[in-house]
Design a protein around this nucleic acid. Structure first.
Length: 211
DNA sequence: TGAATGATCACG
DNA sequence: GTGATCATTCAT
């Protein structure tokens, strides 16, 4: 799919002056080592199509949760009804409800049977900003989706989307041909025991990152 | 720093 | 059943 975007990839065509290749990430993208996926999701665009409306935002912060030996992962103590999606095929949404009021969105990675996922922690709002502002009851763009639960609230992601195919037309991630200059990393946020693994990734100097 | 707020899970 | 915990957010 070609989409005209100002200032990107100029070509010699009087009608189409600028273009950028836009592709939906396929299952192969998620069927890879989770750390790689977590880093490469930065600069991609999360798109949600619900109620006849399109909402989207640029992914600026992620966290990886990998395998059975990661004590911070929901999958650490094996499969349960809640985390079962993490054990399934790559490219599906794992949504969970926590703290009695918040939802978080993960994208399942790696082969079926091996529990791993990437938590989407922050977005730069792009499309459907007014709806996001109404849902979040605030205007500030930098606070709209700068946290895993804020992002879900802004986009209307809840348990109904748990197990949804990320290669569907309801929710997916787009590559809009952007490359990230500098990726930062740190230990993951909100977990108590595990601090050695630097499995949080973010776009450096981006004002939409959480915290 | 602590309250909100309820699903989830381990235990028995 | 019961109680502790929680990949958070917001106000104080």
């Amino acid at each position: 799919m070609l989409r005209r975007i100002e200032g990107k990839g100029e070509i010699n065509n009087p009608i189409i002056k600028y273009f950028v290749m836009v592709t939906k990430l396929d299952r192969q993208f998620y069927d890879r080592p989770t750390l790689k996926v977590a880093k490469e999701l930065l600069g991609k665009y999360l798109v949600v199509k619900m109620n006849g409306e399109i909402l989207s935002g640029k992914i600026v912060e992620t966290e990886a949760y990998i395998g059975y030996k990661d004590p911070a992962s929901h999958a650490y103590r094996g499969m349960t009804p809640r985390n079962s999606v993490m054990f399934g095929d790559p490219g599906y949404a794992y949504v969970y409800f926590t703290y009695g009021m918040h939802h978080c969105l993960n994208l399942v990675t790696e082969k079926s049977g091996y529990p791993a996922a990437v938590l989407l922690r922050a977005l730069e709002p792009v499309q459907g900003i007014e709806t996001m502002q109404n849902r979040r009851k605030l205007k500030s763009l930098t606070d709209l989706a700068s946290g895993p639960a804020k992002l879900c609230q802004a986009l209307g992601v809840d348990l109904k989307l748990n197990g949804t195919d990320m290669c569907s037309d309801i929710i997916y991630v787009e590559d809009r041909g952007e490359t990230i200059e500098k990726i930062g990393s740190s230990s993951r946020i909100g977990i108590t025991e595990e601090k050695k693994r630097k499995w949080r990734f973010f776009i450096r100097n981006n004002e939409y990152v959480s915290r």
